[in-house]
Amino acid sequence: MAENQPIHIEALNPDCCNQWLYQQDACLTCAMCASVCPVAGVDNYDPRKMVRMVSLGMVDQVVQSRWPWICTMCGKCEQSCPMGIDISDLTRKIRSLREGKHVPGILSKGLAAALETGNNLSLPKEDFIFILEDVGDEVAEEPGLEGFTVPIDKKGARILTTIHNKLVNTHTEDLKPWWRIFHAAGEDWTIASDNWEGTTWGYFTGDDEAMKVMAGRIVENMRRLEIDTLLWPE
């Protein structure tokens, strides 16, 4: 953004976002949001700036900036806002306006993989089952956990649980605590072999449709396996 050239107000379109339901127009520029934001100052960002630019019709500039992506949508800003502006939802909306190929990092790629293959890693079903069984064998070697097995696709179990992709990738150790608890509690549980992914990166990219698909698949798993209760720690 050229900071030196004046921006002509009459060329902007403040009405462009009137239909959005985040109440950005209510901003009184009090800067409460900017004062609580942990990332204010980075990249000259602060929430008030974003809110004001959107309400002045400078949406493109905000979409092109890094601001919505260095924000974690933690919600401190909107909690302090005296006018009740949904600032973190607005951030998410701004994120959604970034074209997929320009979304930073691996978010778009991971989401596309999830929509196509059921998980962010494109991990084939047989590899997934192999990892689960391998880690399950390790758990079964622990004292008191003899005979432990991972129940996969168990119809009529009480609990279905999802898996965070990092637990079948770099952090397999972290699979074990839940399994130990299940075993100790004598819980009747299971993992689905398809669409087991617990994360939904559509949440981060502002893609509501993708979120619906991912959540729908989990619901579908519950129907298929006739399970009423979901444990979804992601």
Binding site: N4, Q5, I7, H8, T29, R48, R52, M53
Partner: peptide, 15 residues
């Protein structure tokens, strides 16, 4: 009308 805007830190101009 020329002015630096405090909240967006942009310089605006309006006729």
């Amino acid at each position: 009308i020329d002015y630096p805007d405090e909240s967006t830190r942009n310089t605006f101009q309006l006729t």
